[in-house]
Structure formats: structure tokens, C-alpha cells
Amino acid sequence: MVERDLEAVVLPELAMFAVAPRRGEALRQRSQRALPTPLPECGRTLFTDGLRTVCVRPDQWLVLGEGTAEWLGALLAEAFGDAANMVDVSGAYVGMRVRGAGSRAALGKFLPLDLHPRAMQAGHAAATLAAHLPVLLWQADDMPTYELLCTRSYAASFRRTMELIGVF
């Protein structure tokens, strides 16, 4: 049996909120003390203890948590109160994790991004269009491990594309 140098799994359902600052509020600063995982700068992602924060556009973040939408909503309400505008988008995406030495070459058939370690490292995040699918992704670690999200209505096509390029 040929040993594959990459593995792929479907991510479990996560709670997810889109967060933006109310006029003039410095949310990133607040998040440093108020959230277990602070809000990162644009193009980056941070993760601790089941809570991930992602930024791919200025002044907007996605916060993802391994838990219910109620729990995450309450956590964020407590952290930001009136300083933030928040929208619950839990369930809007399906996700996949691809990891291993072969993942760069495999994802090179899908993503139009430079995945070379000189260009992209652990903690980098991006939104892009890959094989006509809108994709949100980040590099989680140096293995490398990548996590990719695609909007739910495209789930079947996303899966099919991953099969066609040999990731699944």
C-alpha cells in the first residue's frame, strides 16, 4: 500500500460570529484582555483552547469556537458589550483540514496562492477564489496543516473538488 504524504478530514461544526467594531471602538485592544484568543491583525489568525479568531479584511473578524452559538454569543457579548456589532453566522460554512508534507503540492492544484514557506507561514490567513469556489483558509502549523472553509451551499462541490485533486 502506498503511504500518502497528506491526510484530509472534514472539520466538525463550529459556532461562528462575524464581529466588527462600533464607531471608533478599538476592538483589538479590548480583545487582548477580554478574550482568551485576541483579535489578530489583517491576514492573520490566532488560536488557543478551542477558540480561533481570523482576520482577512480590515476591521472585521470571524470568531470560531468549538461549542454552541449561545455560548460563543455570550462570550463575545461579555467581552465586547456595546463596542461591537456582531452577527451569528454559525453553520454558514463547512470546513476541511489538510495536513502533511504533500499538502502544499496538492493544494497548489486548487489555491491560486503562494504556499511556499517564504510566502506563507503558520498563523497566516486568506480569503480567495479557488476552482470557482469562494474559500477562506489559514495555515495552522508548520507540518504544514491548513484549514479551509467554504460556504455551505457549495459543500458538495467543495468535496468533489478535493477528490478530483487527490486530497480526499
Partner: peptide, 11 residues
């Protein structure tokens, strides 16, 4: 204007 909007079509 203080407004934030997000697509929830898939949510």
C-alpha cells in the same frame, strides 16, 4: 455610518 452587514444566505 455605523453599520456592519454580513451575508447570512448560507447560515
Amino acid at each position: 455610518l455605523d453599520v456592519h452587514f454580513v451575508s447570512i444566505s448560507d447560515r
